[in-house]
Amino acid sequence: MFNNLKKLISLVFATVLLTSISSTSFAIDKLHFIIGGGAGGGWDGTARGTGEALTKAGFLKSASYENMSGGGGGKALSYIINTKPEGTVLVQSTPLVLRSITRHKGYVKGSGVLSYKDVKPIAGVIGDYGAIAVAKNSPYKNFKDVVDAYKKDPKSIKMAGGSVRGSMDHLIGALAFQEAGANPNNVVYVPYDAGGKALAGLLSGETQILSTGLGEVMGARDQVRIIGITAPERVGDAPEVPTLKEQGYDVQFVNWRGFFAPKSMPSGDVKKIAKMLGDVQKTPEWETVRKRNAWVNIYNPGSKFDSFLKKQTKEMTKLMKKLGVI
């Protein structure tokens, strides 16, 4: 009886739902992506774009995506840590490191919970450099002009950013000012709730500089002058933009986006997925997706990724302590 019912339900559904392979094989041919935010966001685009390139280039037979928002990505992270689902990876980015530092202000009990140390880093795949921008008609031509003006009158420089105090946007600008010998805590940071709104604030003249990701200002290059990016060298998509390093401020920061696995995933599988993510970056299918999203490839797998995360944690902890946000 039960078997018949099962068959019947299966039959009804097989016709209407997309079917996929039910049995697990040894090779990884399907992946489930957990996305800690809603459709249309940065994590969503990264997971869906990567999945699309992986399937189109033939590395995977199928990929599925599950949005799970809440707690600024914490909900999805705790799902990966606690439930340890099979064949599943989590997309994350620099805020994971920041979250590990702040322990998300009391949401977490015990030690080591909701940190990147509780998941297995697979690989960093793409990145976005930080950028400092001014309006086109601004008197500041380069970062030195800004620093000089700041040193003359610290109140004359208001720095806009697309997120809260202590966020990545804030840290990018703070890093640059710190490198220039200023106390980053004295730079007035004006937070907006989206990159676009911070950009509008800059252009309306209520702030003098904007500190955010390069991707956020790529669309407005006609309105703003990018006076420095946190890349080691100039980037191909915007060759006219100078780095902070070449101006004598050795600031390097990359907002990476990458994938993580639950602790329960066998190391062999983690390595396979990491290799797949590296190989796919050489395919034309990836190039299409990359170009569409103006991503920068920063393939950074396995233990290299792990030590990068450790280094970033150290740097950011120091800076955030200085800024008084932890």
Partner: peptide, 23 residues
């Protein structure tokens, strides 16, 4: 079907997964 199949909005369903209809 419209959400999951056409619009690719993932709907969690352990039961259908157990039966083997959904990936």
């Amino acid at each position: 079907y419209l959400l999951h199949g056409v619009l690719a909005v993932y709907l969690r369903d352990p039961l259908l997964k157990y039966i083997g209809i959904m990936g």
